[in-house]
Design a protein around this nucleic acid. Sequence first.
DNA 1: GTATCTTTGTGTCAATAAGACACTAAGATA
DNA 2: TATCTTAGTGTCTTATTGACACAAAGATAC
Lengths: 241, 241
Amino acid sequence: MKKSIGVNKRDNVKEFEQADSTTVSVDCVVFGYDGYGLKVLIMDCTMPHFKGYDSLIGELVLKSETLDEAAKRILQYWTGLDNLYLEQVKAFSDPGRHPLGRVISVAYYSLVQIDNYKIDPQLKDRLRWADVNELGQMAFDHYDILHSCLSTLQKKIREKPLGFSLLPKKFTLIQLQNLYESILSIELDKRNFRRKLTNLGLLIDLDELQQSVNHRPAKLYSFDFEKYRKKKSKGNLQFEI
Amino acid sequence: MKKSIGVNKRDNVKEFEQADSTTVSVDCVVFGYDGYGLKVLIMDCTMPHFKGYDSLIGELVLKSETLDEAAKRILQYWTGLDNLYLEQVKAFSDPGRHPLGRVISVAYYSLVQIDNYKIDPQLKDRLRWADVNELGQMAFDHYDILHSCLSTLQKKIREKPLGFSLLPKKFTLIQLQNLYESILSIELDKRNFRRKLTNLGLLIDLDELQQSVNHRPAKLYSFDFEKYRKKKSKGNLQFEI
DNA sequence: GTATCTTTGTGTCAATAAGACACTAAGATA
DNA sequence: TATCTTAGTGTCTTATTGACACAAAGATAC
C-alpha cells in the first residue's frame, strides 16, 4: 500500500476545488395514523423514468441550507404543515439509484396527525395516504427508504413518546394501544398495556368521554409533554413500551 | 401558499441539470479500546484553516462509489485494515461547516482491536490514538461528529455485541466489564454482570488462563458470533446489557 | 516452601417488573 | 326495559434486577 501523497484530499485546496460534486436530495417519509393502520403520504411520480410510480416526498437540497432545513421546507411545501416531528434516518448513495445521475439522498421521517390535516386540493391528484403494507414497487429506491424509516420508527416509538404525535391531542387508551399494535405488528395485552402507561405517570386524564360512538364511550387522555421533558432532564425516566 | 408549478424539482429534468451541486465527504470515527479507556484515531490536520488541529479521518466521496464503500476505502487507506465493523451515523450539513465551501459530511464510526493494529510508520507523525475525553476543540465540526458517534456507540453497544469487536479475540470477563464501564461511564456490579453474560449463553469458555499477569490469572473467553447469528435469525434473542 | 499479595470468581435474598388471564360496568340502540 | 358493544379493572405467577462479602488461585518475595 502506498502512502504516496501523505496528505488526504481534504488537506489540499486544489484537489478540493476539482472534487467530484454531487447532487443531494432529501426524501421524507411522512407517517400518519388513521385509527386503522399506519399510512404514508405518497406522491405520484411524474419523472419520465418512473411515470406513474409511487414515490416519497423529496426535493433537491439547496447550497445555503442544512438538511434539516431542507426537510422542513419540503414538508411545508407539500403538506403546508410546520413543526412536525422530524428525524434524519440515513443517507442512500447507490451510484445508480437515480436515472439522471449521481444523487445522494438523505432520508427523514416525520409524523403527522392525520385528522388535523387535509391534503391541499391543488395537490390532491398527486398526493394520497397509502397503507404502509399496500406499497410494493416504488420509484427510485424509495421502497428501501420507506422500510428503513419504518424500522427506525418501530424502534424509536418504544423508547420515545412518538406515538402521541400520530394521534389527536385527545385520545383513548384503546386508540393508543391500537396504534402501537399496528405500528409494531404485535398484539398487546390490554391490562398490561394500561398498567405500563399509567405507571409512567405521563397521561392526563381529561375527565371527558369519547363522542358519537354507538357503544360505551371511552375516557379521553392527553400526553403530558411538559412533565415528560422535566422528568427526562432530571434523568429519572425511561420511557419504554 | 402557491403551488405554482405543481411538480417538484426532481420531476423536472432541466431543473435537475441546473441543480446546486455539493461536495460530499465521509468522516470516520475509529474507536479503539486499550484496556484502560476508549480511544479515537485522530489525525493531525494540515489544511491551512485548521493547521495543527485534531481531526477525524475523512475524505471526499467519489461519484462512482456508495458512502459505505467510501468509508471502507478511507479506513483501508489510513489504517490498512479491512473488514472492520462500520456503521453510518448521521449527515452533517451546516453550510458553514467547511471553510472552502459547501461540504456535506456523512459520519461513520468503526471499531478496531487496538492490540492487533500498529499505526503505519509512514503515517505515525500524523495519526495517534487519543483518549475520547482528552479531546477538546477539533477541526471543522469534528468534535460534534465525534460525540454524535459516541452516543450512538453507547446506545448500540447495549443492544448488539459490538464490544467484542474492540477486545482481543480471547478476553477475560473483567476486561469485558471494564470495557462496558468505560464506554458507558457507569459502574457495573461484577456478579450481576457475569450472571447476565453467562445467561446469554454466547460466551465460549476457552479453558485457558490469562498469561503474564502477576496475580491470579483470569479465565479466557471468546464470543460465539456464529451462535449469535443463529439465535438472532431465529428471533429468540435479545442481546441487552 | 511458606507467607503474603493481588485479583479472580462465586450465591442468596429481597424488590421490582412482566406475563397470563375473565368478568363486570357503562352507555347506545331498538 | 332488554340487549348489544366496547370499556375498564385486579390478582397471581414467573422472570429479572439489584444489593451485597468472602474464599480460592496463582505470582512473588523471603
